[in-house]
């Protein structure tokens, strides 16, 4: 396991409001990192940093030991809660998009043999996420769960170094969410993915992750609450073999808790 993505003393500030402070993190290849924390604690800011949508105010972010440009690139895939598929393309077109962009810089359209090959590759990827039957449907004809499956397939066809998930299952009902958990775990294992997932659902974070990060403000100035940002208050590695333990009840699993330097303990049955 080698370090894939590292944050070195990263701060995010908007004006005089500090959102994240002193983030020092190393994410290893093959990790499934769940990020939880209360609303406004900078979970999404952290993801935006990794995505390159935003640059840190201070500090550096390294991907494979190279500083990350503040721009999205094909080495990082992303799935948002909403709007991450293109409504004007069919499922197949959505998945082929990444291949077309890479192979045809001018028109982003393929013809002939290249097109057939891209089609086959995309079709295989759609089958992988269980959308074989819906290959020629438009997103508007799909349910929320199917759209998220499509968004995942679309991202995975580029074989990204890291897959970033921003509350990907937040809008789905519990049954579908469970199916999606199994899907993402299978893909994570099969494709040896590195995943960072932001979620509001603590159960989901512990169920899927090999490591759970909790972001929160760790000190509070009542006169200027915006002057202290959030940092990683718990960093909990979960030593479990995900492939086998997925179906088991999480509450019965022993959690190995490594508190941060603050020395706070966590109530694991009534998680925050």
């Amino acid at each position: 396991m080698t370090a894939l993505l590292s944050f070195k003393d990263v701060w995010v500030e908007y004006g005089d409001k500090i959102v994240l402070e002193r983030i020092n993190l190393t994410i290893e290849e093959g990790a499934f990192v769940s990020v939880i924390g209360p609303s406004g604690a900078g979970k999404s800011s952290l993801l935006r940093l990794a995505l390159g949508q935003e640059a840190p105010t201070r500090g550096t972010i390294l991907l494979d030991d190279i500083p990350l440009a503040p721009e999205c690139g094909p080495d990082r895939g992303v799935v948002f809660q909403h709007y991450s598929v293109f409504p004007h393309l069919t499922a197949l077109g959505n998945v082929m998009f990444g291949l077309e962009c890479a192979q045809s810089p001018l028109l982003a359209k393929l013809t002939g043999a290249a097109r057939r090959q891209a089609r086959e590759e995309a079709a295989a990827m759609l089958e992988e996420v269980g959308l074989k039957e819906a290959m020629h449907s438009y997103p508007a004809q799909m349910s929320g769960g199917m759209q998220q499956r499509l968004a995942i397939a679309q991202a995975l066809i580029k074989r990204p170094r890291i897959l970033l998930l921003d509350e990907p299952f937040g809008a789905l009902d519990p049954g579908i969410r469970n199916d999606m958990h199994q899907l993402i775990t299978r893909l994570w294992t099969d494709y040896k993915l590195t995943v960072i997932m932001v979620t509001h659902d603590i159960g989901e974070a512990f169920k899927l992750g090999t490591r759970v990060l909790t972001l929160d403000k760790w000190r509070h100035d009542p006169h200027a609450p915006h002057r202290y940002g959030a940092k990683v208050v718990y960093d909990i590695p979960l030593e479990r073999n995900k492939q086998e333990s997925l179906s088991q009840d999480d509450a019965t699993q022993p959690l190995s808790i490594v508190p941060d330097d603050a020395g706070i303990t966590i109530d694991r049955f009534d998680n925050n």
Binding site: L51, Q53, E71, C72, G73, P74, R76, G77, V78, F80, H82, Y83, S84, V85, F86, F97, G98, E100, C101, A102, P105, L106, L107, A108, K109, A151, Q154, A155, K158, P160
Partner: peptide, 19 residues
């Protein structure tokens, strides 16, 4: 989200515009 997603799929400004 769509604009960002397209960039993570490797789209350039031109490709974003036409596709």
């Amino acid at each position: 989200e769509q604009i960002l997603k397209a960039q993570t799929l490797g789209a350039s400004t031109w490709q974003l515009m036409i596709r």
